[in-house]
């Protein structure tokens, strides 16, 4: 289970290694035991590997502004769509950013789509997300029908490969 964050233009995947008896996460392979002492107003106190940390924190959409004693941080929650965009090597494939269910399908096979256009809507963790085309193209296949369940990383839809489209003689 991974949630991605961006700090100073760099992406950091936070993996949940264990949830009980204590929360263990890993960032780029560095493991931390985390105890959350909760938030009061804008202050969050946590313990990481037995060490106390105290942050002032406020959110603005997907951006968290934090301040510790000497330093301020801006941490962005990476939008699952962006995450897909950055992690999928192949822009033909629309992959699931997290496990979930297909709620609705906006495009059918053979439809043309523009980059950023919604192909289908999924629901994960009670949160609906539109999955969009990563480039202009034509829908080749919808791999998961409505109400189908899927795991993180599974291909949900794919576009007709670029090369076969470019072979048009009028080019």
């Amino acid at each position: 289970m991974t949630v991605r964050f961006v700090v100073e233009d760099k992406e950091y995947p936070v993996d949940i290694i264990a949830r009980t008896p204590v929360l263990v996460v890993a960032i780029d392979g560095r493991q931390y035991e985390v105890v959350d002492h909760g938030a009061h107003k804008n202050r969050r106190k946590i313990e990481i590997n037995g060490q106390a940390h105290d942050f002032m924190l406020a959110h603005d959409g997907n951006i968290a502004h934090l301040k510790s004693k000497n330093r301020s941080w801006t941490v962005s929650l990476l939008d699952p769509r962006q995450a897909t965009e950055q992690t999928a090597a192949n822009s033909d494939e629309i992959r699931a950013p997290m496990p979930g269910v297909v709620v609705s399908i906006a495009k059918k096979e053979g439809d043309t789509v523009a980059r950023g256009e919604t192909v289908l809507t999924i629901e994960s963790m009670k949160l609906q997300t539109n999955l969009t085309a990563l480039r202009d193209g034509v829908i080749g296949k919808i791999h998961k029908p409505q109400d189908a369940l899927f795991d993180k990383g599974e291909v949900i839809a794919s576009l007709v490969p670029e090369t076969s489209q470019n072979s048009s003689p009028t080019e």
């Binding site: 964050f5 950091y12 936070v14 931390y32 946590i46 990481i48 940390h53 924190l57």
Partner: peptide, 11 residues
């Protein structure tokens, strides 16, 4: 990493 974890815990 601590800042990221603090942000994560608020997400």
């Amino acid at each position: 990493d601590a800042a990221i974890i603090a942000a994560a815990l608020s997400s």
